[in-house]
Amino acid sequence: MPLLELESLQVRFPVERGFFGRGTRVVHAVEDLSLTVAAGEAVGLVGESGCGKTTLGRALLRLIEPTSGTIRFNGEDITHLPAGELRSRRRQFQMIFQDPFGSLNPRLTVGQSLAEPLEIHGIASTPAERAERIATLLRSVGLHADHADRYPHEFSGGQRQRIVIARALAVEPKLLVCDEPVSALDVSVQAQVVNLLQDLQRERGVALLFISHDLAVVEHLCQRVAVMYLGRVVELGPAREVCRRPSHPYTAALLSAVPTLDATSRQKRIVLRGDPPSPIDPPSGCPFHPRCPIAQDRCRSERPALREIQPGRWSACWVEADQLKGRS
């Protein structure tokens, strides 16, 4: 049984239209999305801005209510769980956001920030136990116990992100949803936080859903990767295999666009034309067809479903499916 199971999840937002508001239009942020995360597994969720990856991260923790679909955590359907019960389940899944400056209350000391989840979930009951636990948490993310008495402004961005991670760990979650956790950090500091997350996953068995636009970090950190385009997963599979031999043309273009240190690769590049289309009016057929270098007539009218092309590897592309048929 997977730790987290999303089945046909859909999130739509109404947007007000124009001054006279002739009917509202709808943003299709997440469409018919199914994904699992096993206990202790690290799954990457990649895609460009507007693809719905952040909305998905929030919807699965029910920070945003999904429009339809099912969220199961440890086998239990939590999609419609009332707020009171949801709170007790939230102990098992925590979220880390991109901006460590906006995630900590500037008027609370680090110790007070870390004590809050302990109190809410009734974990350490006496002040002495709490202080002991806070010290342990700070040490586990590479900070000192006496940092508990300081305020967030006394820390650098990388240290603040560690504090945020320590706070998420306070309740001993089984799943950490990380939304671009290193994007706001200096390059030389990013590796510290990536290594910390890697240790948490490997040594403590915390499952990660790592939302990022950075394919290289996902390839490094995650066992599996899901590539999103316009609210849907277009490719899913083992991270290293997908990065080495992408199946979907969007994944191939995304990988090819990543600048590398290798100056000899300068010429071999698939440059996608145009911008990602709007999730308000998604194109007909395959959502990627207007930018796809290998689009065919069928792609313009019929949307390809995500199908298993090899054991464990999934792709949503007609052309790829036809090629497989031709080979067999």
């Binding site: 510290q192 290289a216 390839e219 990988l255």
Partner: peptide, 17 residues
């Protein structure tokens, strides 16, 4: 910095800020 296509076991972080 992790490099795409050349995954390593662990990143070599620069300590401090």
């Amino acid at each position: 910095v992790p490099e795409l296509g050349h995954p390593r076991e662990r990143l070599i972080a620069i300590p401090g800020t």
